[in-house]
Computed example of a mutant assay.
Amino acid sequence: MSAESVEAERVRSSAVEEIAIWGRGYVRRHPAASLETLGRQVILGGRAVRYLVVDAWTGKFPFGEFVHQAAFMVKTSVVPTVAVALPVSATLSIQFGLLAGQVGATSLAGAASGLAVIRQSAPLVTAILLAAAVGSAICSDLGARTIRDEIDAMEVMGVSVLRRLVVPRLAAGIIVAMALTGFSCFIGFLAGYLFNVYVQDGTPGSFMATFSSFATAGDLYLAMVKAAVFGTIVTVVACEKGLDTKGGPGGVANSVNATVVASIILLMVVNVGFTEMYTILFPRTTL
Score class of each variant (00 low, 15 high):
Phe211His: 07
Ser212His: 06
Gly251Val: 00
Thr275Asp: 12
Thr245His: 04
Ser255Arg: 00
Val261Ser: 01
Val234Gly: 05
Phe207Thr: 01
Met224Arg: 13
Val269Met: 14
Gly205Trp: 07
Thr203Cys: 10
Val272Gln: 15
Ile264Ser: 05
Met208Val: 10
Leu267Val: 10
Lys226Leu: 11
Lys241Met: 08
Leu222Ile: 08
Val261Asn: 02
Phe211Ala: 05
Ile233His: 08
Gly205Asp: 00
Thr232Pro: 11
Asn257Thr: 06
Gly231Glu: 12
Ile233Thr: 12
Met277Ile: 15
Glu276Tyr: 15
Thr259Leu: 02
Ile265Asn: 04
Thr210Leu: 04
Leu222Met: 13
Ala209Lys: 03
Phe230Trp: 11
Glu276Ala: 13
Gly248Val: 00
Val237Cys: 03
Ser263Ile: 01
Val256Gln: 06
Asn271Asp: 15
Ala223Pro: 08
Met277Leu: 15
Ala209Arg: 07
Asn257Glu: 08
Val229Leu: 13
Leu243Ala: 03
Ile233Cys: 11
Thr203Ala: 10
Phe207Asp: 05
Gly202Asp: 08
Met208Asp: 01
Val225Cys: 13
Val260Gly: 01
Ser206Glu: 09
Gly205Met: 04
Lys226Arg: 14
Asn254Thr: 09
Leu243Trp: 01
Thr203Leu: 03
Thr275Asn: 11
Gly273Asp: 07
Met268Ser: 14
Ala238Met: 09
Ala217Leu: 12
Phe207Ile: 00
Lys246Ala: 09
Val236Glu: 05
Tyr221Asn: 14
Gly242Pro: 03
Ala223Cys: 12
Cys239Ala: 11
Leu222Ser: 07
Met224Ile: 13
Val269Ala: 14
Ile233Met: 13
Ile233Ser: 09
Gly231Thr: 10
Gly251Thr: 01
Phe207Cys: 02
Met268Pro: 12
Asn254Phe: 06
Leu267Gly: 06
Gly247Ala: 06
Ala215Trp: 03
Val272Phe: 14
Phe274Thr: 02
Ser255His: 05
Tyr221Pro: 14
